[in-house]
Amino acid sequence: MTEKECGHQHDEEPNNPLRRLIAALIGFVILILFIILLIWLILRPTKPHFILQDATVYAFNTSAPFNFLTTNIQITIASRNPNGRIGIYYDKLDIYATYRGQQVTLPTLLPQTYQGHKDVSIWSPFVYGNNVPIAPYLGSAISQDLMVGTVLLNVKIDGRVKWKVGSFISGKYHLYVNCPAYVGVGGKMMGNSVVVGKSSAIKYQLVQNCHVDV
């Protein structure tokens, strides 16, 4: 055997097992990813459906000169998992209310929930904010809405979901829910303020479908 052949053989022998191991690992990873993709395409997960069922208004008051808003509303919202083979984990869901694009309540954290196949979950949280400053341009708008007696609020949920297929649990996906709701807040003027229902709460049946993005 010539010196050139010996050197060539000496260079290849240590590298062949390493290359085979790397190729095997790459092939294994590709196979696992392909299986996951195939399962995903077969099952075709569908985003959950949300319905805003009702809202009970305990307070929706402005203070002079309509630059501060106090809100206390109990929301009943239902979620349904439409998937027959996929479960849903709801993780760190915050619910809050906005008025004409401005958030007017603090976020309320909903409990972590697992939703099985075709299951329905119902939450009844309070969303509230005390003397929340509102943008000056909203002052006249909110005063007019309050005098008319109806306010358009958007109840929103912001959080994360995970999909469960058998024993496999996916990574976290962003969940965004928007539920428009016309809420009656008929009040009366007291000085420079509009005051709503101090003595009793007012409950409104809404049954409003929500827009969901995942």
Rank of each mutant, 00 (worst) to 15 (best):
Asp54Ser: 14
Lys203Phe: 02
Gln144Trp: 04
Asn67Glu: 09
Leu52Phe: 00
Ala78Thr: 06
Val165Trp: 03
Leu175Gly: 05
Ser199Asp: 12
Ser170Pro: 05
Val194Ala: 04
Val155Ser: 03
Leu38Phe: 14
Val151Asn: 07
Asp94Gly: 02
Tyr114Trp: 08
His117Ile: 05
Val148Glu: 14
Val195Ala: 02
Asn130Thr: 10
Tyr58Met: 10
Asn178Ala: 12
Ala181Pro: 00
Phe28Glu: 01
Asn178Cys: 06
Gly184Cys: 06
Val177Phe: 07
Pro45Gly: 09
Leu33Ile: 09
Asn67Cys: 02
Lys188Gln: 13
Val104Met: 07
Thr2Tyr: 03
Thr56His: 03
Leu21Asp: 10
His10Ser: 12
Val212Ala: 06
Leu21Ile: 07
Gly171Lys: 08
Ala23Gly: 11
Lys172Ala: 14
Asp119Glu: 15
Phe50Cys: 00
Gly7Leu: 15
His211Glu: 05
Arg20Lys: 13
Val127Ser: 02
Gln144Ile: 09
Asn83Arg: 04
Tyr58Ala: 07
Cys6Thr: 14
Gly7Ile: 12
Val127Thr: 06
His8Ser: 14
Pro45Trp: 08
Thr105Ile: 08
Phe68Ile: 06
Met147Asp: 03
Tyr58Asn: 12
Gly197Asn: 15
Ser79His: 00
Lys198Leu: 14
Ile22Trp: 09
Gln53Phe: 00
Pro111Thr: 04
Ser79Tyr: 00
Thr76Gly: 00
Gly87Ala: 13
Leu138Lys: 02
Gln53His: 03
Asn83Gly: 07
Pro107His: 10
Tyr176Val: 10
Ile169Tyr: 13
Val195Gln: 09
Cys179Asn: 08
Phe34His: 03
Tyr96Trp: 11
Phe168Ser: 06
Gly87Leu: 00
Arg19Val: 09
Ser167Gly: 08
Asn81Trp: 01
Leu37His: 06
Trp40Ile: 01
Ser200Asp: 14
Gln103Gly: 09
Asn61Cys: 07
Phe168Asp: 01
Tyr182Gly: 12
Arg19Trp: 05
Asn154Asp: 15
Asn15Gln: 09
Ala64Trp: 10
Pro107Asn: 11
Ser200Ala: 15
Val161Glu: 02
Trp163Cys: 03
Gln112Thr: 14
Trp163Thr: 05
Ile77Thr: 02
Gln102Pro: 01
Tyr99Lys: 02
Asn61Gln: 07
Pro136Leu: 14
Asn15Ser: 08
Cys6Phe: 12
Arg19Thr: 05
Pro133Val: 09
Val132His: 02
Ile202Val: 12
Ile88Leu: 14
Ser170Gly: 07
Leu146Cys: 01
Tyr114Asp: 08
Asn15His: 06
Arg19Ala: 05
Thr70Tyr: 06
Leu106Gln: 10
Lys172Glu: 09
Gln112Ala: 12
Leu43Cys: 05
Tyr114His: 08
Ser167Ile: 10
Val177Thr: 13
Tyr114Phe: 15
Val214Arg: 02
Leu152Ile: 13
Ala23Leu: 15
Leu31Gln: 02
Gln103Arg: 15
Gly186His: 15
Pro82Ile: 03
Leu43Thr: 13
Ser79Ile: 03
Tyr128Thr: 04
Leu109Ile: 15
Lys4Gly: 01
